[in-house]
């Protein structure tokens, strides 16, 4: 039950993109087609899951026992960036088809603040490992939901005749604002 609450809260109430403003670069950058948005979401889910597990272990078995929490930011970002590279290499070897689908998005993930953000939030919330895993999956799900809805709307946005200054990003941001407004309806759900 507790895990369901964590997931619902992460997907809808505290949506990582629309309420917590994390992962906006890919949100604006790769969301012009539903297909690329789906690929990106898959890559994020994959990396966020592994990164959360590994950083959780580092935090609880290395940083805390040695009282060097101040190395947290450095340790986490290094883990994430080397992880991304490793995933890229391994995926290429063992599953070329998955690599084809996710490959181009992997390098972009290092600078996706959603990943680092979620690992840091996990640590701040003092989650147990299993809770942390659900938390990560929930947030990745929220990211996917926001990204795919947004991409679906953006595909149609290109067809509309807008004033010159509003074309492209500003119009997309207005759409994001309206989506965010809709997601606010979930506030207080859990």
């Amino acid at each position: 039950m507790e895990y369901i609450v964590i997931i619902i809260s992460a997907v809808f109430v505290n949506n990582i993109v629309l309420a917590q403003f994390l992962g906006l670069c890919p949100f604006v950058g790769v969301s012009s087609k539903v297909k690329t948005a789906t690929g990106m979401s898959g890559a994020v889910l994959f990396v966020m899951f592994i990164a959360t597990v590994i950083t959780w272990l580092i935090q609880n078995y290395i940083l805390l026992p040695f009282k060097i929490e101040y190395m947290q930011t450095i340790a986490f970002i290094l883990v994430i960036s080397s992880l991304v590279q490793m995933v890229e290499i391994i995926l290429k070897k063992i599953s070329p088809s998955l690599f084809q689908a996710l490959g181009v998005f992997l390098p972009l993930i290092t600078t996706n603040c959603a990943i680092l953000g979620v690992t840091l939030l996990t640590v701040q919330n003092d989650f147990k490992l299993l809770e942390a895993v659900f938390f990560a999956i929930g947030h990745a799900g929220g990211f996917a939901l926001a990204l795919i809805i947004f991409a679906g709307i953006r595909e149609h946005l290109d067809l509309i005749n807008l004033p010159k200054g509003m074309r492209g990003v500003p119009a997309a941001l207005v759409v994001a604002g309206i989506l965010s407004l809709a997601f606010m309806g979930f506030a207080g759900l859990v």
């Binding site: 200054g165 509003m166 500003p170 997309a172 941001l173 207005v174 994001a176």
Partner: peptide
Amino acid sequence: LAPGAFLGLAYLIAL
């Protein structure tokens, strides 16, 4: 609130 951030930025960029 959150939506205002998106809307505010959208119009500032256009401006």
